[in-house]
Design a protein around this nucleic acid. Structure first.
Lengths: 251, 251
DNA sequence: CAGCTGTGACTGGTCCGACCAGTGGACTAG
DNA sequence: CTAGTCCACTGGTCGGACCAGTCACAGCTG
């Protein structure tokens, strides 16, 4: 065979796919912003010069990806949604379900991200931000008397504040997603634990230690404490032979 | 108003949605496995007792989520796909683009993930894995003589091996995604740099130092070196006032 | 005048029937 | 036994139809 150009296999591009691409490109170019509306399906039919079936298939894909939302009867047409991590979380849950993602991996991820965020936060935090962080501790304490869901909510706020102080929304989103996945996997075990209240109190204590380390400005200590706490909190749910990777992070 | 049961707002469930749910549930229950085939669209029409449009909308959603793939003319019907991270990556890229992530955030993320992966890897690695890692260094060296794209490819392999040694595919996926985003932002600057070859050689040297630290089993040192190297490599592209968060990670 | 109401022009959700360009297996001719 | 043809069937796309719901607005009522 002669040495020729290396051809790429060509797969047919469906019409609905090109519609999806056009809408997503308009989004990244800023021509479409959340809150704005798409034309109605019948209007899109004329603009894209395809049938309504094709337009609808494109809209279903966009809807499944959390880009738009269609409501019957809405004269304004489909709505462009603000970014939400639900679609991302859905994919990650799927990844976890297929069991290519173990609980240990998820928790390792959280130990890494949260520890790093705390390390950065302890060096960048302003006095006002430190006060805000301490305020979230108060909220967590009060939530314990409500129920586990409220406590979980307050805990989420704590980690959000940490990520914001660390000036990194990527960490914030990733943590939120992974945290959600972990909770869907084991939240029932925690919520139904007979010592649920004790667990919450202990978790609160751990968070307080982290805040204390952040106040003193010792980033490494704060990160180490945070990782150790998370290990203590979750290790019981991880199979023994998968804990090595987690322990490698606590040192 | 009397105290009654707390009702939830009810949103209409579309027919195509219930089809998607049924297929996904069959997947998690193991009744459907990758490689198997779904009945043809017209057969699904009779099984679900809906129209073909509805079936097709469901298939488009499943296809967009990476669950199945339809090929025209295939008498076996849509194929159940093995899990792939492409759908996950798609969502993350969307996050990166829509949330206006700064280069500093992305690089911070890489410093964190890569450093942690290296730290774990240096404690879990087997001799065989260490040898494999050293082999990737050789591949990187050879790729320098080809072009930047080849070097970039070899570099990607290096970090993939690291993540695999760390027993964490989530880190692997995240790193791959973020790395891709970073490269789309500044790869042209690097590739067009007059000292492109010198940069690659320096990068290779840095990777060799990391491998040396992994060989000696000093996880903290390996992680610190890796983060410092990445900072040196990328800091020039980051605005001065955003480097604080990165420096907080090198300490 | 203000407020309610009924109407009608829309919306999206679903269904049906049709046509096309492909695919792949069976069947036939060599 | 092989090579070629053929055909049933696939998914992709189209156009039209009907339904239930929503919303804006005109018109009526007070």
């Amino acid at each position: 065979m002669a040495d020729g150009p290396r051809f790429q296999p060509v797969q047919p591009v469906r019409a609905y796919q090109r519609i999806v691409e056009q809408v997503e490109e308009a989004l990244v170019r800023g021509e479409l912003a959340p809150g704005q509306r798409l034309p109605s399906e019948r209007e899109l039919v004329t603009q894209f010069a395809v049938s309504r079936s094709t337009v609808r298939e494109a809209l279903r894909v966009l809807e499944s990806n959390g880009v738009v939302r269609s409501r019957p009867g809405d004269p304004n047409g489909p709505e462009i949604l603000p970014f939400s991590s639900t679609a991302l979380r859905k994919q990650m849950v799927r990844l976890a379900r297929v069991d290519e993602l173990t609980l240990a991996e998820l928790i390792a991820f959280r130990m890494i991200m949260d520890g790093a965020a705390i390390q950065v936060a302890s060096q960048l935090r302003t006095p006002a931000e430190l006060a805000e962080l301490e305020q979230t501790l108060v909220a967590m304490r009060e939530a314990i008397d409500v129920d586990f869901a409220a406590f979980s909510e307050a805990d989420l706020t704590f980690h959000d504040v940490i990520a914001r102080i660390a000036r990194n929304s990527l960490i914030q989103t990733c943590n939120e997603v992974v945290r959600g996945v972990v909770l869907t996997l084991i939240s029932d075990k925690i919520a139904h634990a007979p010592n649920s209240r004790a667990l919450m109190l202990e978790s609160l204590q751990h968070h307080a230690e982290v805040v204390e380390a952040i106040r003193s400005g010792d980033g490494h200590a704060a990160a180490r404490i945070a990782r150790q706490n998370m290990y203590d909190y979750y290790a019981g749910y991880v199979p023994e032979d998968e804990r090595d990777a987690l322990r490698a992070l606590t040192g």
